[in-house]
Structure formats: C-alpha cells, structure tokens
Nucleic acid binder design. Structure first.
Length: 382
DNA sequence: CGACGGGACGC
DNA sequence: CGACGGGACGC
C-alpha cells in the first residue's frame, strides 16, 4: 500500500502523474461552496483570475427523480452540489493568486475555502474521524492539539446545538451553557494517520479530561440511509427539495447556526402548521412545482394578513434570519398606498424557505396572525 | 373569514 | 444518554 510513486516531485519536465501534467501547483480544491452555485458560476468566478484548464463542481449523482421528470429539464438530471469542486489553472501563478484572493471569500451564506488539491490517491480517502465524548468547553484548537500527534490535520470541527429559537438563546445568555454537543470531526491527510489516532485515542481519557472519548471513522455522507420520501411526493421534488425534505423528516433543522440576535423577532418553530392556512396549498403543494424549480429563480412565498401600514423592511426582518432573501414586495392599493394585506418574499434556497414558512406561518405580528405559504398560481381575475 | 404583484431577458 | 457536519479528492 505504501507507494512513493505518486508523490514524486521533480524540477524537470516529468513527474509522477499519469498524464504527464504536473497539477500540484495548478489544481485547486474549492470547499464550502453555496448550495445553489453552479459549475458555470464557479467557472466564471475563477476565470476572473486567469485561464482555466478545467473546472468541476462535484455533484451527487443519486437521483430521486423518475426519468420522466428528468426528461423535462436536463438540469434536473444532475444531482445536487456536494459543496466542493476542483479548478485547474493553466498557469501556476494564477492558481496561487486564486488561493490568495478567493480563499475566504464570502458567497451568500458561506465562506469558501480555496486551497491546493492533494494529488488524487486512495490513501487520502476515508480519513475522516468522528469524535464524541468531548468536554463541552473544548475549543477547536484544543481538539486539533489532541489529534495533531498522529498526523496532518486537514479539517476539524466541533458540532454545536441547533439554535432554532429564542429559548435556546436565552439559556445561553443567562446560564452561559456551552454550545458544544461534545462531538466533532477530524479529517487527516492520510487514512493510516486516522487509523492510528483511533488506536491511540479511542476509549482513552486524555490528560486533563474526566471522561473517555470515542474516536471512530465518520459515516460516509453518501450512504446516509435516512427516511425516504414517498414516491408520489418525490415525483414533484427537485433534488434539493428532496434532500431538504429528507433532513426535515429526520428531524434535523437546516440552516441552523445562522441566527441574528437582537434582530427580533425570532421565533419558535410553529407546531400547528395547517390550521393557519385554510386556503393555502400544502407546504409541498404541486402548484409550486416544478415551475419554480426549473426556472431556478427562487421560491416565492405568499404572506397574508399584513397590516395596512406594513413596509418592506418588515418582510426583510421577518424572513432574513432564515436565509438568503432575494426580494420582498408589499402589495399596496394604488390610491391609498396602504398595504392590501399581503405581500411576497422570494427566497433563494428551498430548504430555507420551508423553515421560514414553518416558522412564520401562524406567527403573531402586532395583533395579526400571519398566514405564510408558498405562492400559488392564483390570479386576481378569478 | 377576507387570500397570491409586477415587471420583463438586462451590464 | 448519545450525538455523524451544507458538504475535502473528481458521485
């Protein structure tokens, strides 16, 4: 297994790569891309630095869509973005410049990471560890320090509780309870480094710790066998929507961690969803699909029972905490300029729109109970 | 107890 | 208590 063949670096014209091109100084890996970013958008961004040899956004190819629906739109045939990709420049100096200027760039709600891709190799796969039983006050540097003796750490992370409502924040502020769930991830450069860390740390109580920790290989994200969507519903869903639904079904709340304290109102997740929307379609009504999905222009949300004095900023404040908001619109009477009682909000990401609807439908704003749902196709003329 | 805009292929 | 992440090697 130990093979030095793939790490040969020479000054001359030859090297260890298969195709004879040394990519070690031109090929970049880009991580933490926004979910909605396409390969062409990625190409556009990185082309601004210099000429590209290639650009590849990695997508999952697992399809939840029947072939008949995919045939409607070629874009649906591709799986959802896995949030990372590769950019290979023609010139090493451009690659270097891309790392220096684009690493850390904020795109939508993400901060992208741009770094040199490691040479593709079997030895670097499956080097991600799942660690539990960590002290709640352990910092990320602490975690890395614990694992550093066993190899080169590529990434690390400590998971935190979802902050989905105001109660959690209150607890945090009043009691100073830590966010950490006591679990984290460590990705090593090499799998054998990860294996050694397991041998040395799993079940052990590190110095200064009071409890033993668990260290094992992290689950492979590709085979997360969570609740599946019933076929009739899946037939209407985009891959993104299906994935979001899977997460919701599994009880996980997407978009956690983005919360704006002090920008009230914040909201408890609404329990009794349906009764506030007697006339609205379901959350996943077929009337909203697949038109929105195909045009890719965002998810339009209908907001009803707004007060006559309502201004646009109210809608921004209501929906902003849930994710990327593209536009808001308060519908007004042309004569009086007073709000006619409803408005529209377009959000970029389906899963964020779902959470916003779930959270805001039934929410009492002033003395009015809002009704929030995906926009339907109703027209005034009816 | 009433319910789904308006503008428009754009640098 | 356990906890598996919006995404790190070309899905």
């Amino acid at each position: 297994m130990t093979n030095a063949m793939d790490i040969v670096i020479k000054n001359g014209s030859t090297n260890g790569s298969v195709d004879g091109n040394d990519e070690s100084r031109t090929n970049l890996i880009v991580n933490y891309l926004p979910q909605t970013m396409t390969q062409e958008e990625m190409r556009s961004l990185f082309s601004s630095i210099g000429e590209l040899e290639s650009c590849k956004l990695v997508r999952d190819k697992i399809s939840v869509l029947p072939a008949s629906l995919q045939a409607l739109n070629p874009a649906l045939q591709q799986g959802q973005s896995l949030g990372y990709g590769f950019v290979n420049y023609v010139r090493p100096e451009d690659a270097e410049k891309a790392v220096n200027t684009l690493n850390g760039l904020r795109l939508q709600n993400k901060v992208i990471k741009v770094s040199y891709a490691r040479p593709s190799s079997e030895s670097i796969k499956g080097a991600n560890l799942y660690v539990s039983g960590l002290p709640k006050n352990l910092s990320q540097p602490d975690l890395e320090a614990l694992f550093a003796p066993y190899g080169k750490i590529i990434t690390s992370r400590i998971l935190c509780d979802n902050i989905s409502d105001i109660e959690v924040i209150k607890k945090l502020l009043l009691n100073g309870i830590g966010l950490s769930k006591g679990v984290g991830f460590i990705r090593f450069d090499q799998r054998n480094e990860a294996e050694r860390a397991i041998q040395e740390l799993n079940g052990k109580t590190p110095k200064g710790y009071t409890e033993p920790i668990t260290v094992k290989f992290a689950n492979n994200p590709s085979n997360s066998a969570k609740a599946q969507i019933p076929p009739p519903l899946a037939a209407y869903l985009t891959p993104q929507a299906a994935a979001a639904t899977r997460r919701l079904t599994a009880g996980a709340l997407p978009s956690a961690g983005r919360i704006s304290i002090g920008k009230s109102p914040l909201f408890a997740i609404n329990k009794g969803l349906q009764r506030y929307s007697p006339l609205a379609g379901d959350l996943l009504a077929n009337s909203i699909l697949p038109g929105n999905a195909i045009t890719g222009s965002g998810w339009c949300i209908f907001v009803y029972n707004l007060a006559p004095e309502t201004e646009e900023n109210v809608l921004w404040q209501l929906f902003g905490p849930f994710g990327a908001v593209q536009s808001v619109k308060v519908i007004r009477d042309l004569q009086t300029s007073k709000c006619k009682g409803f408005g529209f909000v377009t959000m970029t990401n389906y899963d964020e729109a779902v959470v916003a609807i779930q959270s805001l439908n039934g929410y009492t704003l002033g003395n009015r109970v809002l009704q929030v749902s995906f926009k339907t196709n109703k027209t005034k003329t009816a």
